[in-house]
Amino acid sequence: MNGILGYQWKPDLKFVLTSVLYLSFLFEVICPKLSTHFTGDFFDVLAYVAGGVGYYLFVVKQIHKKASSSAS
Rank of each mutant, 00 (worst) to 15 (best):
E28T: 07
L34K: 02
D12A: 10
V29P: 05
T18W: 09
V49G: 00
D44P: 04
S19P: 07
E28M: 05
L26T: 06
D44G: 00
C31D: 01
F15C: 06
I30N: 02
H37V: 14
F42Q: 03
D44C: 01
L46W: 07
V49T: 08
K10V: 14
V45G: 04
Y7K: 15
V45K: 08
C31N: 03
S19V: 11
G6M: 03
V16A: 12
Y22Q: 12
E28C: 01
D41T: 03
D41E: 07
L21F: 13
L34N: 00
G40W: 13
Y7A: 15
Y22R: 14
F15S: 12
L5A: 12
F15D: 08
V20Y: 01
D12G: 11
V49Y: 03
G6S: 02
K33T: 10
L5I: 15
L21I: 07
T39N: 04
L46S: 05
K33E: 10
Y7F: 15
S19N: 11
P11Y: 14
V29M: 01
Y22C: 09
L46E: 00
L13E: 00
I30C: 05
D12F: 14
P32Q: 07
D12I: 12
F27P: 00
L17F: 13
P11A: 13
D41P: 03
I30E: 00
W9D: 08
G40C: 06
D44E: 00
S24T: 01
I30Y: 04
C31V: 05
K33W: 12
P32K: 06
F42Y: 12
D41K: 13
T36C: 03
V29S: 02
I4A: 15
I4D: 04
S35I: 09
L13T: 05
F38T: 06
H37M: 11
F25R: 07
V20H: 07
K14S: 09
P11S: 10
F43H: 12
F27M: 08
F38C: 12
V45F: 10
V16Q: 02
V45D: 01
L23A: 09
S35T: 14
V45P: 04
E28S: 04
I4L: 15
Y48M: 05
L13W: 15
Y7V: 11
G40M: 07
L23I: 07
H37I: 08
F43I: 11
L17Y: 10
L23N: 09
W9R: 13
L34Y: 02
K10F: 10
P32S: 00
L17V: 11
I30M: 03
Y7E: 07
F43S: 12
T36K: 15
S19A: 14
L23G: 04
G3K: 14
I30T: 03
L34A: 01
V45S: 01
D44K: 08
V45L: 04
Y7I: 09
I30F: 04
Y22D: 06
I4Q: 12
V45A: 03
L21A: 08
F15T: 09
L23F: 14
S24W: 13
F27I: 02
K10P: 04
Y48N: 05
V49F: 07
L13V: 14
H37Y: 15
S24P: 03
F25I: 06
V29E: 01
T18N: 11
I30V: 12
I30L: 02
